[in-house]
């Protein structure tokens, strides 16, 4: 049992910062929110969600733009804006396997932004990002919330992009 008695509602424009020690169940909470895990008891109801966790989920041998585009085509979205938002446009033709850790992080965030999903689930979104990229994330989060989206992020460090409601797990 990771946690119990968790009651949580998130409305449009809200952002939730999930905190807690390692192993408290932050990532599991994100996976519960998008239906990848089923709760042992209780129910989860959520809008279509996009998830950026430790896995990149982009084809390594493909150029970045094509790899992102494959998911965007499934979602019916387009990647140009998302790539620009995370300063990836100049990397469009670079194969995904050549990207650095921080660039991979930004690519995963761009995948989420391009999905058009109203709920963003971000697992440690700022780890590996430099200050400028953290600012870019802040801008993207703010824009997403203004458009009526919601964000849930698990992180050990403060997050950019406006006021975050805090949920403490395992504390």
């Amino acid at each position: 049992m990771l946690f119990e008695g968790l009651d949580l509602a998130l409305t449009a424009g809200e952002a939730l910062w999930v905190r807690g020690p390692n192993g408290a169940g932050k990532s599991s909470l994100l996976r519960l929110a998008c239906g990848l895990l089923k709760p042992a008891a209780g129910t989860v109801r959520a809008q279509a969600a996009a998830l950026a966790d430790h896995a990149l989920a982009l084809d390594r041998e493909q150029p970045l733009a094509s790899a992102l585009d494959w998911w965007a085509a499934l979602d019916g979205g387009s990647v140009a804006d998302a790539m620009a938002a995370f300063d990836l446009t100049h990397l469009a033709e670079v194969p995904v396997r050549m990207l650095s850790t921080g660039q991979e992080r930004r690519a995963a965030l761009a995948r989420v932004a391009a999905s058009g999903a109203s709920l963003w689930l971000l697992d440690e979104p700022v780890s590996g990002l430099d200050t400028r990229s953290v600012e870019l994330l802040g801008v993207a989060v703010t824009k997403h919330r203004k458009a009526g989206g919601a964000v849930v992020a698990a992180s050990h460090v403060p997050l950019p992009g406006g006021e975050w409601r805090i949920l403490e797990l395992g504390g």
């Binding site: 998008c34 990848l36 969600a49 966790d53 896995a55 989920a57 390594r60």
Partner: peptide
């Protein structure tokens, strides 16, 4: 599986 592609497909 290792790269999270299966998770992303399930999400959709």
């Amino acid at each position: 599986r290792a790269d999270g592609v299966l998770d992303q497909l399930c999400l959709r």
